[in-house]
Every structure is written in structure tokens, then in C-alpha cells.
Write a protein that binds this DNA or RNA. Structure first.
Lengths: 193, 193
DNA sequence: TATCTTTGCTAACGAACGTTAGTTTAAGCA
DNA sequence: TGCTTAAACTAACGTTCGTTAGCAAAGATA
């Protein structure tokens, strides 16, 4: 779907995602946003309520995608290693398919105001807990090394959430391909067996 | 060294590091900074040239630390696995010992203007190349799996540069301790052998 | 004591900020 | 054709921004 065929409201959201990612939320003015679309700043308010509403839309839409995709791939799987692998690849696919939005999700959430900010943190913590449980399961099953669960979870998310800093969805590597390679990397490490 | 004993200039730089990290560079005003110190915004300009100078100081000081620490630990080491391990632990120590500054280095560098911006990117690329070479050496020596070098380098840095998002230097785990654990994680992965 | 330097102050500059009010334009529909 | 509505416009609001000018206080130096 090209950007011209979107409704103006969707178009605003899409351009906002891109600008918030490239320049940061605070450094992006409503005049920047309007200019990128080709209208006046004041005209934006025929479609949106406020600048912060744009940030909220991005953050909570992507949060929902993380949960949805997680639930979809976990459904029915019991093997701890496979459960972890599916969680990692699902997360990676969401990030790699939504580079602008996930970048904003990772880096600009702190500009949310209450009560959105607390709601955001709660959702993120709930999502992180799922990964901690997967790691615990793997350790208890004797499949994973005895790592500290919350420490390992942090390292896993650091790896995954850094994806927008380097990945370009330009055809060289598909989201599915990097998802598998990242899962390999996290599970196997760098050393040859 | 407590913050009261610093020269005013050093104090400004230190508080700026902290505010730029917590709120972001753009969302931090010179009035915020002055208030945190207890003077008027205009008084800052008796000590500094501009807001951007503060950002430059942070970014290039920490860049120099990365290079210095890297050179220090590589000196004399030839074993590829050990060279990689030393590079990772050195980088981790610099990050973990400079959480505010490294956070700004990772997230706020894009607000640099030219020519500082290009200089920053060049230094970062040179530093990343060192890690790529270490990975290449390890693969050629048959110690590392045959991963794509620049892909693996990106994953390594994602892991390392995410440290400020979760690590608190509060005595529970020292910078040296997490450095070793992160090196283990990158080399061994999650799976039990 | 007289002078210089450092470090702070108040006041203010012009620019940019997010947003609102009121109006115009143009398309869809009765 | 006349009416309604959506979506744009111009103008402006009050606020905040980084920064400068000019001055005052205080300590160091002569």
C-alpha cells in the first residue's frame, strides 16, 4: 500500500513514525510533520488530537503486535527450546517488519505522559515476564545453561531491540531470515562446538 | 569525587550527561540544566560555549575511552578467542562505568551538527571495524562458527550497547562481573553443551 | 588600596513551539 | 441547485527555546 492511497490520518501516523524515529519525538515539530505531508501545521488538527496522541498510537499499536504474534506462535508448542526460538523469531519479525514504529517504541516511549506512561511500562513488563518464563523453563528442562534469568532476558532483548539500528528491509535479508539467524546466535553463541 | 567538589564546568558537564540521558538532548533545556545546578540559564554561558558543545564533549570523550581501553587490553594478546573476550569486557567496563555518558553516546549522537556528526560516524565505524576483524580472525582460526562478520558484529554491539537500559551500578554486580558474564553469553549462547 | 578576573545576575532578543479560532474551498448528496 | 461536511487555509495565541548584552559582587593579585 503506497503512502498516497492511505487516508490522511493513516498518512500522518506513518510519516510521524518515520520522523519520530529519524529525529526523535522532541526534535520533531508539528511543522516538520506537516511539511513532510504537504499541508500546514494547523491542518493536522483536523485529523488528530495532539502530538502525544501520535506517540501513543505508535507505542500501543506495536505493543499489541508483540503480544499477538507471541500468542500466535506459542499456541500448542511445549518444547522449551522451540518455545524460546518461536518467541525470538516472532519478536524479530515484528521489529523487522515495523522498523520505524518499533524504533519509536524502544526509544521514544519515555516522552509519553501519565497515565499512558505507566500503562506502557506495565505492558512491557508483562511481555518481558513471558520471556523470563521461557528461560526458566529451558533451564529447568536442562536445555539451557544455568544463567540468571532476568540478566539473560535483558541481554536477549538488547540484541533484539537493537535490530532497527542496523537492519534495512531492502531485500538482502528478509525478516524471517534474520529472525532465524538471530535465534541461532542467541542459542549457540559464537564458539564452534 | 562528589559533585560539589567539581569545578563548575565539570559539574555542568556531569549534570548535562545525566539530563541528556534521562530526558534526551532535545527535551533538555538550558533552563532545566541550570535549575539542576542552582544557577540561572544565562550563567551557564560563563563556562560553556553552547548546548551542542556539551553533547560533543560527552560523545567524543566516551569515544576516546572506548579506543583507549581497547588498545590497552589488546596489547600483546594473540589468541583470537581471548582477543575477542578482552574487547568485549573492555567495552562493557567502559559502558558500565559511564552509564550516563555512554547512554548519550548511543542515543543522542544524531543531534550533533556537522562537522562533528561526520567525525563521530567515522570514529564509530573505525571502532566497529576492529570488532569485525576480531570476528574474522576467530573464524579463520576455526574457533568461531562461520557467521556473517558484519551481522555478528551488529548483534554483539546491540547486546553491549543495551547495557545502560538495565544495568545499575549499585554494588550488586560490578562492571567487571557483568563484563565476564556478557562475554560468556556471547561466546557460549544459551544452550547447554 | 586599586585593578583585574571570575562568576553570577537581570533583562531581553528573535525564533520556534504546540495549539486554537475562524474562515474558505471543494466535494457529496438531497 | 442548495445544504452539509470534511479538510484545508491564514492568523494568531501564549509559552518556551538558546543565546546575548550589560552589569554587579567577590575574590585574587599588584
Amino acid at each position: 500500500m503506497s503512502i498516497e492511497t492511505l487516508s490522511r490520518k493513516d498518512q500522518i501516523n506513518q510519516v510521524a513514525q518515520n520522523l519520530f524515529r529519524e529525529k526523535g519525538y522532541s526534535a520533531t515539530s508539528m511543522r516538520d510533520l506537516a511539511k513532510a505531508i504537504g499541508i500546514e501545521a494547523a491542518s493536522l488538527y483536523s485529523h488528530i488530537k495532539s502530538k502525544e496522541e501520535l506517540l501513543q498510537n505508535i507505542c500501543f499499536r506495536i505493543a499489541a503486535e508483540f503480544f499477538d504474534e507471541y500468542d500466535r506462535v506459542q499456541n500448542g508448542t511445549t518444547d522449551p527450546k522451540l518455545r524460546f526460538r518461536h518467541a525470538v523469531t516472532a519478536h524479530t519479525r515484528v521489529v523487522a517488519s515495523n522498523l520505524d514504529a518499533s524504533s519509536v517504541f524502544f526509544n521514544e516511549w519515555r516522552h509519553l505522559n501519565e497515565p499512558s506512561l505507566s500503562e506502557f511500562k506495565a505492558q512491557r513488563a508483562a511481555y518481558e515476564d513471558r520471556f523470563k518464563n521461557l528461560l526458566r523453563e529451558g533451564i529447568e528442562a536442562g536445555v539451557f545453561r544455568k544463567v540468571q534469568v532476568s540478566f539473560a532476558m535483558r541481554l536477549v532483548f538488547s540484541t533484539l531491540n537493537g535490530i532497527p539500528t542496523w537492519y534495512r528491509n531492502d531485500g538482502a535479508l528478509s525478516p524471517d531470515q534474520i529472525a532465524e539467524q538471530i535465534a541461532d546466535f542467541l542459542l549457540e553463541g559464537l564458539l564452534k562446538k
